[in-house]
Design a protein around this nucleic acid. Structure first.
Lengths: 139, 139
DNA sequence: CCTTGCGTTGAAGCGCGCTTCAACTCGTAC
DNA sequence: GTACGAGTTGAAGCGCGCTTCAACGCAAGG
């Protein structure tokens, strides 16, 4: 009962807790750090990672980029600009704008295809109906 | 000049022409056939593939599934049902409906993330403006 | 005849985004 | 002391969706 010590005094999180919160597996968190997507993660005196609120916010942003289909190379480019500080704000803005435009184009195509699929579904629905109708009228 | 013999008398298409029309590379066309996504492709007397209008229509449909993010396994399942003939219409309908629902859910998630990115863009735009304002007012 | 172009095949290779593995280190509990 | 659970590392492995490669076939043109 007293072994439930999930919350940290200093408000930092273990890798397991961070994994839980972000949905990223511990392996993925380490992987992202290794390739430079996440950096500056602090360590406890035992050498273990201790994630801070700022790290979580950054991961949330990365997740949004990922959800919208940005490849890791793109996120990496953004992460590197971010390390460059205020001087890179304009470039970050441009990167995000390009991505935004790409996502919109992509999803317009997806929606066009989905419309076609919707039509196919409607077609199949008519087929199934006919079939049911026949078997009802027959015999 | 007389070497330009693109159109076939019988209306069938070579793999190069089909590639051109569908945007799928000849390698991909062979690959799709190998794994069973496309089948019943006729051959000329020389053993070369000759694609028919029906093949093209099927590919167009596959492309819509692909565009909307269906994995090859899913397309394969549909292709196999299709080979099963009329008896599988209901199953095909269900498969498409599940896919349709999935695409919509995904799309909503993407749009939510995109909104957040839009906000970040707006934030960066304000930052850039401020910066410009300062340098204008200074000196 | 021999080159050129377009095709064929089976098998291997590749880039992406993780995941898994093996070996090791802590701190705590018994 | 020793066993356990949660973490660490570097390296290898994996599933997906093609792409590339090597070796060959065949028909037309020079």
């Amino acid at each position: 009962m007293a072994t439930e010590r999930i919350e940290q005094i200093d408000g930092t999180l273990t890798i397991a807790e961070t994994s839980e919160l972000t949905g990223l597996s511990p392996s993925t968190l380490r992987y992202y750090e290794r390739i430079g997507l996440i950096d500056g993660v602090e360590r406890g005196p035992d050498g273990r990672r201790r994630y801070q609120a700022a790290d979580l916010a950054w991961m949330a942003f990365l997740l949004r980029l990922r959800t919208t289909g940005m490849p890791i190379q793109g996120m990496l480019a953004f992460a590197e600009l971010r390390r460059g500080g205020d001087a890179t704000v304009r470039e970050r803005l441009e990167l995000l704008r390009r991505h935004q435009a790409q996502v919109r184009r992509k999803y317009e195509a997806v929606m066009r295809s989905l419309d076609a699929i919707d039509n196919k579904i409607a077609h199949y629905e008519r087929l199934v109906e006919e079939r049911d109708g026949e078997s009802g009228r027959e015999a």
